[in-house]
């Protein structure tokens, strides 16, 4: 049984339909990349999966349970956590408070988890009282990742985790993702940085204009001439 199975999802904003029946599958523990041109509906797909958008057709299945149309605050409890593409931290909250918000649904003592997270992101530990709005883009991305990890997710959805970062930071973000994945967490990520993402991923999907275009193992997509021409800069 797949961890996440999105089947023929149809979704959009208001009357504008953006996704016209997209399907993707994530197996436990694997990294899956979604690539595609701007506006092809990658973020829309993620929002539909986590319940921010109510799909008008198709279904979302997580760990064998139908979660189509379930509210996001209930989906995260099931172990599916999400880092949006932009504005993915609470700017006026301190780093520590951002992490606390990540643990909002936990009723048990989450302090041990915070300690673990600080061990994983030592840079954050030293600045835990600082407002997130004062952080650099890379540090914010770390806070966003850390926030989403607070619930020990089974599957992490990352929307362009490396967007707008300096090359150094891009490398360390991918490093972190690899680290997270090695602990058994499955990762589904959207990336502009297609080469890096596909290299890291077990499988990849190419989305175009709200349709599945191509899919396959990361390495074979990397060598696909069409993918190379369109997304890997020749």
């Amino acid at each position: 049984m797949s961890l996440l199975a999105v089947q023929g999802i149809v979704a959009g904003y208001g009357q504008t339909e953006i996704l016209h029946g997209v399907s993707i599958v994530v197996e436990p523990g694997e990294i899956v990349a979604i690539i595609g041109p701007n506006g092809s509906g990658k973020s829309t797909l993620m929002k539909s999966a986590v319940g921010l958008l109510r799909p008008t057709g198709g279904s979302v299945n997580f760990r064998g349970e139908d979660i189509t149309g379930v509210a996001p605050e209930n989906i995260v409890r099931k172990g599916l956590c999400y880092v949006p593409q932009s504005s993915n931290v609470f700017p006026s909250l301190s780093i520590h408070e951002n992490l606390e918000m990540g643990a909002f649904v936990r009723t048990d003592d989450y302090r041990p988890r915070i300690t673990e997270i600080y061990d994983l992101f030592p840079d954050l530990a030293s600045r835990r009282k600082e407002r997130a709005s004062r952080l650099s883009g890379g540090q914010r991305q770390m806070v966003a990742l850390a926030r989403a990890l607070m619930l020990n997710p089974v599957l992490l959805l990352l929307d362009e985790p490396s967007a707008g970062l300096a090359p150094m930071m891009v490398a360390s973000v991918f490093e972190k993702i690899k680290g997270i994945s090695s602990t058994g967490v499955a990762v589904l990520m959207v990336e502009q940085n297609a080469r890096e993402a596909l290299r890291l991923s077990a499988r990849g999907y190419v989305l175009a204009a709200g349709h599945n275009r191509l899919e396959g193992p990361g390495r074979s997509l990397l060598s696909d001439p069409e993918v190379a021409r369109l997304y890997l800069g020749g």
């Binding site: 996001p72 605050e73 949006p84 504005s87 006026s92 909250l93 918000m101 990540g102 926030r147």
Partner: peptide, 24 residues
């Protein structure tokens, strides 16, 4: 308080609050 911080979080970014599990 938990609810107080959730209020500030929601004021900052409602969508992010929801995907953090906050019942907005």
């Amino acid at each position: 308080t938990r609810m107080g911080k959730a209020m500030r979080a929601t004021s900052d970014n409602e969508e992010l609050a929801r995907v953090s599990g906050i019942n907005t």
